[in-house]
Design a binder for these strands. Structure first.
Ligand SMILES: [Mn+2]
Ligand SMILES: [Mn+2]
Ligand SMILES: [Zn+2]
Ligand SMILES: [Zn+2]
Lengths: 147, 147
DNA sequence: TCCTATATTGGACTCAGTCCAAGTCAAGAC
DNA sequence: GTCTTGACTTGGACTGAGTCCAATATAGGA
């Protein structure tokens, strides 16, 4: 059983076939699937699993902090199982490819006190946009940007 | 006539009543409206303006670089007329309030060469999340996060 | 094995955004 | 000022991600 399933059981989750399958789909590293991509892969393992269960489970995993929601294109939400290691994302504006990146400095330290306006600042997300080697080579047309 | 309208005319745009009204709505500083908010405000000035025209015009302004699309909640796109001054955003996770912030260092410099994976990195967006003074005082329930 | 709170399901629904064919009109030509 | 025309606008249909719900199924403790 995966670490994730073990932690969920410790939290009192019922280990249903649907949840096992979703955990298995999310098991890879550096994976950033949309809910429908998770569903498509889950269906291969458990044909009768519903979209609603995928949305339910992903939402619960986000609430528990086991999965992070990321949105790199301003359109679709993606689900990142690499939630226990702080990291940021590098996105290809040609093909949409996403890479995890680690920064040298905590991005919070780049926000001066005078720019905090009394907020209790808790978190920062940084997304880098550029062209991946394949898209630079292919000189592909840029896709929709959106930060 | 606003600077924006002058620039649009120089680019060969027809200055229709709809475009004038949208430019007027976007005229304020530090404004981050959704398309439907722009439409609601535009209707006050020109009751017959359509949603389609608002979407068309906002899309064109984004293409021209006169307006920046931002998405701070993973749901709705917002339109930022402050496109000529590089800045980042500070978002209240309680009430959704958005503030412009300026950083001391270019965020691109925080991404080490070894973390670029051959990408031609062109741009970075940074979003800070926290509680605004009003929400800290009210101890309001946190809204949906999403980076 | 039984019980039931918890989980799953299909389908209806919402809401942001896109698309389109038909009608309108800004602005240059005269 | 009028004409002309291609750019612009419009309502409404459509898409696709995400939410909601009442009916059904089941995990797991008793
Ligand atoms: Mn990631
Ligand atoms: Mn802004
Ligand atoms: Zn690429
Ligand atoms: Zn607030």
């Amino acid at each position: 059983m995966s670490d994730l399933l073990r932690r969920l059981r410790a939290r009192g989750w019922r280990l249903t076939a649907q949840r096992r399958v979703i955990a298995e789909v999310l098991d890879g590293e550096h994976v950033h699937y949309t809910a429908d991509e998770v569903h498509a892969r889950a269906v291969e393992l458990l044909p009768e699993i519903s979209r609603a269960s995928v949305y339910n489970t992903l939402g619960e995993l986000v609430t528990l902090g086991e999965v992070t929601e990321v949105n790199t294109d301003g359109r679709v939400r993606r689900y990142d199982p690499n939630a226990h290691e702080a990291h940021q994302h590098l996105v290809c504006s040609g093909c949409g490819a996403i890479r995890d990146v680690r920064l040298t400095d905590d991005p919070l330290s780049a926000l001066p006190e005078g720019e905090r306006f009394g907020f209790q600042v808790a978190q920062a997300t940084v997304t880098y946009y550029g062209r991946c080697p394949a898209c630079v080579a292919a000189n592909a047309a840029p896709g929709p940007p959106v930060g």
